[in-house]
Nucleic acid binder design. Structure first.
Lengths: 148, 148
DNA sequence: ATATTTGATAGAGCTAACTCTAGGTCAATA
DNA sequence: TATTGACCTAGAGTTAGCTCTATCAAATAT
């Protein structure tokens, strides 16, 4: 069972243009072509690989790093340690991103409180509170371990 | 008390180039200039404003939207509702980002487990587990409320 | 008083990640 | 069989967000 690029675009939400672009950039060298027509034929395994690529991209990893990772995968078992290290490192990255998101969320919450008061009073001048409260120090690592 | 652009760059971690670029893009119209020399003179209030801008940028808001927000701030009290709505909306955005980050984290954790086994076995072929486990449905909103 | 540093502007250059166009091939349908 | 539609490549164009250069003015250090 294989899928055309259009079908994959529908299933994945990635545009046909982008799928071809990724292929050109070396992100999907595993996708085979039809011998006669040269058309791409995606397998289910290819779709799984694509979802890993999407995950890494979602963490902000640039395409050339993702390409390196894919190359490692193609290079076989002697890159296993390297790939493990990559994911362990990326875990740190994501945890830091969540930390930043939580800090942003906190700041946004303060702003929401601030503007609620201001809207109620009809003017900003009536609002007294400072916007920069002291940061709380969430033990992020533990919390995230708990969430998963 | 005012700060030069170089001092602000140091304090904020934003490069001088970028600070000038933001100013050119209309993100910091509130920063006054020295009458005689034309140099920018940042106040403490300006730094606070800048930290809000940094927060919004950190949530992925594009610069032109941030500029609109800043313009609302300059336009005074009749934009209060609009500004409240903006932050309420941005809160949703950040919560969704955290959700995506947690899903990515989960996938990465599975990969880490996978590669640990593979490294131990010396080959990928020995690893049996599927990589795409069913998603857990964390009640994200409540959890985040709890964290803050 | 002079030299160095810091700041200013205008505008060019750069990178990443698409996004689209042109011109062609191949496959599926009326 | 003819036509429509999906796919192909090469390469140009686009956007966001910086980043840097050239050139000049002002401030600070020696």
């Amino acid at each position: 069972m294989t899928y055309s690029i259009g079908t994959v675009a529908e299933k994945s939400g990635i545009s046909i243009y982008t799928l071809r672009y990724y292929d050109k950039m070396g992100l999907t060298p595993f996708v085979k072509r039809n011998e006669a027509s040269g058309r791409r034929e995606f397998t289910d395994s290819d779709l799984n690989f694509l979802s890993v690529i999407t995950c890494l991209k979602g963490t902000g990893m640039p395409l050339n790093e993702i390409r390196n990772f894919v190359q490692c995968c193609m290079d076989g078992d002697n890159t296993l340690n390297q790939r493990l290290a990559l994911f362990e490192n990326q875990k740190e990255v994501v945890i830091n991103q969540i930390g930043e998101s939580l800090r942003n969320l906190q700041k946004i919450d303060h702003k929401i409180e601030y503007y609620k008061k201001a809207v109620k009073a009809g003017t900003e001048k009536a609002v007294t509170g400072k916007n920069n409260l002291p940061e709380n120090h969430v033990p992020l690592n533990e919390l995230i371990d708990e969430l998963l």
